[in-house]
Design a protein around this nucleic acid. Structure first.
Lengths: 289, 289
DNA sequence: CAAAGCTGTATTATCCATCATACAGGTTCC
DNA sequence: GGAACCTGTATGATGGATAATACAGCTTTG
């Protein structure tokens, strides 16, 4: 029979420790149990424990000091970018950080059936396919694969795609975009995304699949996005709506400053809990839409 | 030099093939290249290729026929549950499927600092912590860790928690919930979640962290949820809003019918469940005939 | 300073995933 | 039927991950 492919022991221990760290069970600054102790606890050799700690260190979750110990790193310094549901990078703009785009692949052809179906294409209809990587401060954080019907794709050049948001190019071509559906999920990094995102194969990735429709109902863009979870995540504010019978959460439409708030608030609710009016975040929009 | 912990080759090839399948490059029904061909392509032995195919088969992505070949399975029969952003299982209700809850852990204590901070607790303030697993049709799909201030948690019993939604219990206690923030991300399964969700360690998971606030701004619930991506995903409809200068996507509040339709075709295959009981697969390491 | 920790590093032995190969049995097609 | 595929299964050889052990150098503590 097959012996199921089991993760390496080092990886096992890495995941275990990582969980305890991100769960807060091991708070920032705390010293981890010594390597011999960990080795005994998990019934592995010290070499294996060190491999696990190597991984944690490479991810910036712990910091090792020779002769002293291994300490949980203050992760607050390494925060992921925050995006709202519209995929707008919230405080990216405020902070004036720059994003670059690298175009990995560009071409035309007949798409796989699943894409054709979701775009509502006629059999054999051609699309433009592109693969892009987006970087922030030189570090890659997203891997985008897009499919656009050929008749739209032909209205802009390869260089334009690398320079401007795709949706802007689509709208410039005269198409009106009105409706979209998107799904968020998780997956593991295959070889190409892993290489492009500077990750190891098998790393976790956040996925977003979005299909944009024009009013007639035809699809005009199919986006498959992969995000590094340590550099990107989706945030949103919810408000309780509906009358008593059918209560549920709805996305807050007031504007995002939500995440920053949830963080700024914590200090506030503690110290001065008089209802200070939430300061309208100064919309310093760098105009990047 | 440290030889970095590299994923097993079998896993590598598994991920590669999986990507090509879900991307639609290998459409349902298509025969995969033969095992010897795959082995040559990836410069590995046939045994390793088989291990990769074993994984794909176990996930239902391919179907093997002795003497004939390995075929891409029609994945449309194995679709994840769909939830909107409010975390409401959309057509789950329509279809009359049942969800059960298993309570894995229940107790009171002082939470880790990161939780206390996000709930806005006073130092040393106690919380109720619970870990639950949610199942659909007997299969686990989510692993929920919740922290609730003690004064709220004491208003209901352990049994009630296992039977009713937590938020309902909180509101029953007299607390009004008004606002919440949530973040969606991805991670790898550690030992406990993996066991509870019937997954291998290192499987990808979708995460949702939600903090619910009462009007005064105090946190009343901290939820950390892990979802199996093959059984759960977030979907939403977006509409293009805003005037010309500042166009963006907003969540559509009207009801999703787009996604439901794509799934409405329930070609129930007979391959659903064999009589085998999934309780505990005896880890057969070696077997000689 | 000295003792007791700790991390960093090296060595050798063992175990397991992978390799290379061979063969059995089913399916497809001529 | 029979050739040419395919998957299923078994074998021994090999290499990399892990184990067990030892020691060096640093930090903290008394």
């Amino acid at each position: 029979m097959k012996s199921a492919v089991e993760p390496l022991k080092a990886r096992r221990i890495y995941l275990l420790l990582r969980d305890r760290i991100v769960a807060g069970e091991l708070p920032p600054g705390r010293r981890l149990p010594g390597e011999p102790v960990l080795a005994a606890e998990h019934a592995v050799s010290r070499v294996t424990v060190r491999r696990a700690l190597d991984l944690l260190e490479k991810e910036g979750l712990v910091q090792r000091k020779a002769g002293s110990g291994t300490f949980v790193h203050d992760t607050r310094t390494v925060r992921p970018i925050v995006a709202d549901l519209s995929n707008v990078l919230s405080h990216l703009i405020d902070m004036g950080r720059s994003t670059d785009v690298k175009l990995l692949s560009f071409g035309y052809g007949v798409p796989p059936e699943s894409i054709a179906e979701s775009l509502g294409l006629k059999p054999g209809e051609r699309v433009q396919r592109s693969v892009r990587v987006r970087l922030i401060d030189g570090e890659p954080f997203s891997y985008l694969t897009t499919h656009v019907p050929e008749w739209i794709g032909l209205t802009y050049s390869e260089a334009e795609l690398a320079a401007r948001p795709l949706l802007e190019l689509i709208e410039r071509s005269g198409v009106t975009t009105e409706r979209a559906t998107q799904a968020i999920n998780a997956t593991l990094a295959g070889p190409e995304p892993a290489a492009a995102l500077d990750l190891e194969i098998g790393s976790p990735l956040l996925t977003l699949t979005r299909i944009v429709y024009e009013p007639s109902g035809r699809g005009v863009e199919h986006l498959h996005a992969l995000y590094r979870p340590d550099r990107y995540s989706f945030h949103m504010d919810l408000v309780r709506t509906g009358s008593d019978g059918e209560r549920r959460w709805s996305p807050a439409l007031g504007w995002p400053r939500g995440i920053d708030k949830s963080k700024a608030d914590k200090n506030k609710t503690e110290k001065n809990k008089q209802g200070e009016k939430p300061t309208r975040s100064p919309r310093v929009t760098k105009q990047r839409s």
